[in-house]
Amino acid sequence: MSSSSKKTNQKPKSAVREWVDSIVFAVVAATLIRWLFFEAFVIPTPSMENSLLVGDYLFVSKMHYGTRTPVTPLQVPLTHQHIWMTKIPSYLDWIQLPQFRLPGFSDVKRGDAVVFNLPVEHPGQVAKYGNSLPDLHGHPIDLRVNYIKRCVAIAGDKLEIKNGQVYINGQPQENPPRMESEYFVSTTTTVNEEKIFKENGVTEPARRHVETFNDTIPGNDQSGYVVFTTEAIAEKLKTYDFVKSVQALHMPAGSRDYGIYPNSETGWNKDNYGPVVLPKKGETIELNKQNIALYGEVIRFYEGNDKVETTGDSSITMDGKALTQYTFKQDYYFMMGDNRHNSADSRYWGFVPKDHIVGKAVFVWMSIDPNPSSALGKIRWNRVFRVVK
């Protein structure tokens, strides 16, 4: 029988089979694209405002820093921690593979907007950080919750923050152009918040200040509003005739911030931090009481070591033997939100290991205002296809 007659005798696919084949092909193609090239994310919190807004939909490039191979292969395709719209886990951790990273275009650089897996979703860290970070659960590396922050320091850098200004290796760093800080707007009257603040790009609700609000506010008898905004918008607010003054709010040096990393005993806070040196692959350090507090969690949870124990912040052992020096196995980064006074970042939970880096945020493809003033304003058209800077 000829090949042409064989084809003629083949039973055609049913409509259901055609649909199933199409869906399988689409899922496989989308999974490969999501793993190898790009992944879509949405901004859920204001920690990166005013650079990235709540409701911004991003494409994140996996290729810039190199795609990671899966650690947890038993997972429902196109899911992260849970099956869509449920709390049912989307994966099984019965098999855990070693992680590798494919070659990328570049290394993580200072100033990059980086998506990464939150390190403190390590099962050994949840108990410590669960009270300060809501919905924190232990997960494998590649399934820990995704955060986006700006890299302000890379491996080997000496970082210090003085009065809100980041210094790297002793030099002040250029701030993101749309960086937000906390300001006190002293007013002579009640303000139409919708008109004045939202129209000026203050996307978070202004907090009304009545008498004593915060020790950082000069003159506790002043009335006004505490807002998160950019320096440029703060200058504009000064021009209104009902505004007496606009003052940046910074915690003074030595003032304790009880959630700070590694602990409040340092006297550091969100505006005055360090100095700290970021761990670098291959670099050996001498361990002492001062830096065990800083690097103990790194050695215990993120370096792939077994049988590491810490006693408070004063000693560390491996296989029952005291460690007096240690050589790091990978690079680490310091991440901060552009909304510097409203961001849970490396100042509060420590360094980001390289194996937790997901990719680089490249552009906003859609932006939905969660609190539009009208139905026509639901889509922020001026942000569509905006390059992330």
Rank of each mutant, 00 (worst) to 15 (best):
V152H: 09
Y167H: 03
D157V: 01
F184A: 03
P103H: 11
G156P: 09
N146C: 14
Q125W: 10
S132E: 06
C151G: 00
N200Y: 07
V108A: 07
K195M: 12
Y129I: 08
G104C: 05
V191Q: 11
K195V: 15
F197S: 12
P176E: 06
E160G: 09
Y129V: 11
V145R: 15
I148C: 02
Q165Y: 05
E194H: 13
Q173K: 02
G164F: 05
T187K: 06
I168Y: 01
S181I: 03
K149V: 02
Q171I: 13
D142P: 02
C151P: 02
F116S: 03
K158F: 06
V115I: 04
I141W: 06
T190P: 08
F184T: 11
H122Y: 07
I168A: 01
E121A: 14
A153H: 03
P176A: 12
A155Q: 00
Q171E: 14
E193F: 14
A113G: 06
E194Q: 15
N192M: 06
N169K: 10
E121I: 13
D107L: 08
Y167K: 05
E194M: 13
F116L: 10
Q171C: 02
V191G: 08
R110E: 11
D135C: 00
F100G: 12
V145F: 07
K198R: 14
H137K: 14
N163Q: 10
D135V: 04
D107I: 06
V120K: 08
E174K: 12
G164M: 04
V152P: 10
N192I: 10
T190K: 15
G164N: 07
H139D: 09
V152E: 11
C151W: 00
G130D: 04
T187F: 11
P176K: 07
V114N: 00
F184P: 07
Y147D: 00
G164E: 01
L136G: 01
E180Q: 12
N117K: 05
F100H: 01
I196H: 08
V126Y: 12
